[in-house]
């Protein structure tokens, strides 16, 4: 069920990018997409009544039914990449706003490549 939800999140993000003209909204919808994919990655590794892959006092043996640790490592990286892209996107958006005075991409399209 969680997989379905994550894919829906992905599609909502895609819809967001498709319809907005404002750059900030676009970056937000890109984030929603990233979020959807990350949740999906986690759900790929999910094992029914599995245990977090961490050896502690209570779950001390590696034979217990652990959840797949690899997707969680990948998600860690993917989240940080999301952060990188968003910070860059916002920086560009701010520069664009200072230069053209608007966040609306279509408006700038008019002044072709002056």
């Amino acid at each position: 069920m969680i997989r379905l939800a994550s894919l829906l999140l992905l599609l909502i993000g895609l819809y967001g990018v498709l319809t907005t003209k404002n750059v900030i909204k676009m970056i937000i919808s890109i984030n929603i997409m990233e979020l959807g994919v990350n949740i999906f990655i986690i759900s790929v590794g999910f094992i029914t009544n599995g245990v977090a892959p961490n050896l502690t006092e209570h779950i001390d043996s590696s034979l217990s039914n652990f959840v797949d640790p690899l997707p969680q490592a990948l998600v860690l990286t993917s989240i940080v990449i999301g952060l990188g892209i968003t910070s860059l996107g916002l920086a560009f958006a701010r520069k664009m706003n200072k230069k053209y005075g608007t966040y609306d991409l279509t408006m700038i399209g008019g002044m072709k490549d002056e």
């Binding site: 892959p53 961490n54 050896l55 652990f66 640790p69 490592a73 990948l74 860690l76 940080v80 952060l83």
Partner: peptide, 27 residues
């Protein structure tokens, strides 16, 4: 003890190096 950390820093630490560069680059 934390298997995810063992993956992140040991088994696939090249990924993490790349990961850190991404953040470095965007900064």
């Amino acid at each position: 003890a934390n298997i995810v950390t063992s993956i992140v820093v040991n088994y696939r630490s090249f990924d993490t190096l790349g990961e850190v560069t991404v953040l470095f680059l965007s900064a």
